[in-house]
């Protein structure tokens, strides 16, 4: 449980950090909160020779609003997300989700950028970002590019992020005022990854669903945007038969691993239960 030998860098600007990464290629890894990377290094499942700590880059922190978009700096901690009045007002599902991540000590250190960039299927924020149709700003030697969260994840720990790039911020379109939302997470205990979790954002016009977005956590080797489930629900009155079809559609795209949380069959079913329960809560909130 001791990492191998590595060189530690602590740059003070994004440009400097990108230059170090570009210089060392695959041998370097950026470090944000470290809650995924450091345990893997302790187990020697990851052995980067250069660790580039982004903690000294002030520009990577903060939450701001620009028109219909909220931008969150990658090094913003879960704790800071929870404490943000802006997010509580405009994107309350972020606070709800962040409160289900690990425990307070971890949330003081763990960051949104690290959570979404690492490609760990157990992390909660990637599915939420897919649900919200967020984009990630990736900064490399040639400048910035944006990749949609829904297109970012390729496989477990494999993403669209190039070795010399840093995920610097997350841009989230602000959902309509009065939208309903819920993040339902089934876990064995505090600090555990989800057995299955579902994020839902929807709007209601009278008794009819205006839009509905569904995404799933930890039931495949990437987060899953359940577009078909969302489409089935959009325009419906959330009658039992439609909900059942949507749940089945969500379950159909899962490919969970069998592990200590349960066999694959169970985790697929739990994804469905989480969708059903998140939907009920989100609809309740949208009406109120």
């Amino acid at each position: 449980m001791i990492p191998g030998v590595f060189t530690y860098h602590r740059p003070s600007s994004v440009a400097e950090a990108v230059a170090i990464l570009a210089n060392h290629g695959d041998e370097a890894r950026p470090l944000s909160g470290g809650h995924s990377l450091i345990p893997m290094m302790k187990l020697r499942m990851a052995a980067p020779e250069h660790l580039v700590d982004l903690g000294g880059i002030a520009a990577l922190k903060g939450i701001s609003e620009d028109g219909d978009t909220i931008t969150i700096g990658a090094m913003t901690t879960q704790h800071e997300l929870i404490g943000s009045d802006l997010l509580s007002a405009k994107l309350p599902i972020i606070r709800e989700t962040a409160l289900m991540i690990a425990d307070p000590q971890i949330r003081y250190v763990g960051t949104l950028g690290g959570n979404v960039a690492n490609g760990d299927p157990g992390n909660d924020m990637p599915a939420l970002m897919q649900c919200l149709d967020a984009s990630y700003v990736l900064t490399g030697p040639d400048g910035d590019r944006q990749v949609a969260a829904r297109a970012f994840y390729e496989a477990a720990y494999f993403t669209a992020l190039a070795p010399e790039e840093i995920l610097t911020s997350i841009r989230i379109p602000v959902p309509a005022a009065g939208h309903g939302y819920a993040y339902e997470k089934l876990k064995r205990k505090v600090g555990d990854y989800a057995t299955a979790a579902a994020a839902i954002v929807l709007t209601m016009n009278g008794g009819t669903v205006g839009m509905c977005s569904v995404a799933l956590t930890n039931v495949a080797d990437t987060p899953l945007f359940a577009s078909e489930a969302g489409d089935i629900l959009t325009g419906s009155t959330l009658d039992a038969a439609t909900v059942k079809r949507a749940v089945a559609a969500a379950e159909a795209i899962t490919q969970p691993a069998s592990d200590g949380r349960g066999p694959a069959e169970y985790r697929t079913k739990m994804a469905g239960v989480m969708v059903e329960r998140a939907l009920a809560r989100a609809a309740e909130r949208a009406r109120s």
Binding site: D103, R188, K189, V190, G191, D192, Y193, D259, G260
Partner: peptide, 24 residues
């Protein structure tokens, strides 16, 4: 403490081995 069929010990860390917190 679980084992798979070839004797790999599964879940020998506090991620999997259930130590309840005050919450549970």
């Amino acid at each position: 403490i679980r084992y798979d069929e070839i004797g790999n010990v599964l879940g020998a860390s506090f991620m999997d081995f259930f130590i309840p917190t005050a919450v549970e």
